[in-house]
Design a protein around this nucleic acid. Structure first.
Length: 511
RNA sequence: CGCGGGGUGGAGCAGUCUGGUAGCUCGCAAGGCUCAUAACCUUGAGGUCCCGGGUUCAAAUCCCGGCCCCGCAACCA
């Protein structure tokens, strides 16, 4: 059986879930549902990253112990994904015992193999980034990320011999063009690797930071947060069992945003090489959501919180927007106008209204009873083929992570169905008694449209898909039926009256 | 020579990798339908696809050069 292992990053618990976290998690969930539907066994991992300086500081500011603070935020993440209906298989916390043990196991292994050595390091350290900067990297003497002057500190550190694996990593990237996707990020990584790679400092003296995993070979030091966090992708599987690990590693698709490209494209593969593990299959990198109204800011009150979006627009509508609006890999704009526009145009008008008119006619003309089908006419065949075509296109686009195009393809078929109604005009034909059997056929085809849509939408809009199947009275377990067009509904099968799937959102309704 | 993204009808965006009628949403104009969530359907107006070269039978798309805009501040995906 084919398998795929889908991961989100372990979200750093210094902030509560916002738009970015939600996007990554939603595409991960969509992919999982999609692969499952294709008969591919998919395992979805998410979780929280809880060690490090920033967390220790944030906890202090909140007057809490680091663990208590991490417990709270991690709990918010988990509750959020639960509330959003994210179908994850495991939620890892980097403070979980099994994870800590695994990190120590790997550290010991690399130490024994000579890939970790003790050295002295002096340099400009940015507390915000939790990393040292070379003078060359500083911009005007300040950290390019935080615009603050770093402190010069000198300390004994343990180093991972990352440089040793540089050549092998370059060769791997060249041999596997789809290891890092989309292309532009692979290029970025290769560009970075043209410069000599420095060894990675992987420890912090306890005197400076004690909120971390102690090194097994030197309890006076704790593990650098990235070295700790990256190993989660393996430790989670190991925790589930050696058989689970064997089943899913290395069939990993890591989903990340572009800001954490370097740890995932450079640290992580070299760590895997040193640990003697095969590399992941894909690193899938997406862009940022840019707020139309300026920066995302608490003070401006425009922070996008997933649960508020769910409450205000419905989770499926929000998912639709995220998946349809962003081109995977590129930045996209987030605005309420665009969101409302998408919901009204695509979901309420085109699709919701289509379902509504079909079910209304089915109800009014035949009391909901499905009518028998005769020979297909040209327009019926064209309609069916449009959905066959959409499904094929969706398959290609999903393989390329082109969610927006997958949905576009489906909507092209949905548009065709709206045209089909106008062209065949069942509401006119119905006035002629002799034409009523044909009206029954037309509606039968339109019910197939809805059933196909429910199936094709399932990974993207799971709740809507379920609701559609309920309206169609599709028996449990047959939602994914591939029975040929026109053979699914027996004559007399009762369909429910229409329901409003996506209410139109009036512009003045937004704050 | 810091890195990266982008410049496509009034607005917002796809399309560019794998050259071959320039597409979508909104808006605008006219018409149709009345089953439907004032939704749906048809037609129309509106485009030097940033500029200049080059390759080609053919370039928004490939190559070279140039111009302009935007991020790299953050609660960070």
């Amino acid at each position: 059986m084919d398998r795929i292992y889908i991961t989100t990053p372990m979200y750093y618990v210094n902030a509560e879930p916002h738009l970015g976290h939600t996007y990554t998690t939603v595409i991960a969930d969509t992919l999982k549902r999609y692969y499952r539907q294709q008969g591919i066994d998919a395992f979805l991992l998410t979780g929280t990253d809880e060690h490090g300086d920033k967390i220790a500081q944030a906890a202090k500011e909140n007057g809490m112990a680091p663990q208590a603070y991490a417990d709270r935020i991690s709990g918010v993440f988990r509750a959020t994904w639960d509330e959003c209906g994210i179908d994850y298989d495991h939620f890892l916390r980097t403070t979980d015992d099994y994870h800590k043990r695994y990190v120590q196991e790997i550290l010991q292994k690399l130490y024994d193999n000579g890939d970790i050595y003790f050295g002295e390091y002096g340099g400009f350290y940015c507390y915000g980034c939790e990393r040292f900067y070379t003078e060359k990297e500083l911009v005007g003497g300040k950290c390019p990320d935080h615009q603050t002057a770093p402190a010069y500190i000198k300390e004994k550190n343990y180093f991972f011999r990352m440089s040793k694996y540089q050549q092998r990593l370059i060769e791997t990237l060249e041999a596997k063009p789809d290891l890092v996707r989309p292309e532009r990020y692979r290029g970025e990584v290769l560009a970075f690797l043209r410069e000599p790679l420095e060894d990675l400092s992987i420890s912090r003296p306890k005197s400076r930071l004690d909120w971390g995993i102690p090194l097994p070979f030197d309890p006076e030091h704790v593990t650098y947060v990235w070295f700790d966090a990256l190993l989660n992708y393996v430790s989670a599987l190991k925790y589930k069992g050696e058989d689970v690990f064997e089943a899913y590693w290395p069939k990993a698709n890591h989903l990340i945003a572009k800001d954490i490209l370097k740890p995932h494209a450079i640290y992580w593969p070299t760590m895997l090489m040193a640990a003697g593990l095969p590399l992941y299959e894909h690193l899938d990198v997406h862009g940022y959501w840019v707020m139309d109204s300026g920066k995302m800011s608490k003070s401006l009150g425009n922070v996008v919180r997933p649960l508020e979006m769910k409450k205000r627009f419905g989770m499926d509508a929000f998912r639709y927007f995220l998946l349809r609006e962003m081109v995977f890999g590129q930045d996209a704009n987030f605005s309420f106008d665009a969101l409302v526009n998408r919901i009204n145009a695509d979901l309420a008008n085109n699709f919701g209204n289509l379902v509504s008119r079909v079910l209304a006619m089915q109800q009014r003309y035949f009391s909901g009873a499905v009518q028998p089908l005769g020979a297909l006419r040209d327009e019926d065949i064209a309609l069916r083929d449009k959905f066959v075509q959409a499904e094929e296109e969706m398959k290609q686009h999903m393989a390329a992570l082109q969610f927006h195009r997958a949905l576009e393809s489906l909507w092209s078929a949905i548009d065709h169905a709206n045209r089909y109604i106008v062209q065949t005009a069942p509401f006119t034909l119905f006035k002629d008694e002799a034409q009523r059997p044909r009206v029954g056929e037309i509606l039968h085809h339109l019910l197939e449209v809805i059933r196909s849509s429910a199936r094709l939408l399932a990974p993207f809009l799971p709740d809507t898909s379920r609701q559609l199947n309920r309206l169609l009275a599709v028996p449990a377990g047959e939602a994914n039926s591939r029975k040929p067009w026109g053979t699914f509904f027996p004559a007399g099968h009762k369909i429910s009256p229409p329901a409003v799937l996506f209410p139109r959102i009036e512009p003045e309704g937004e704050a």
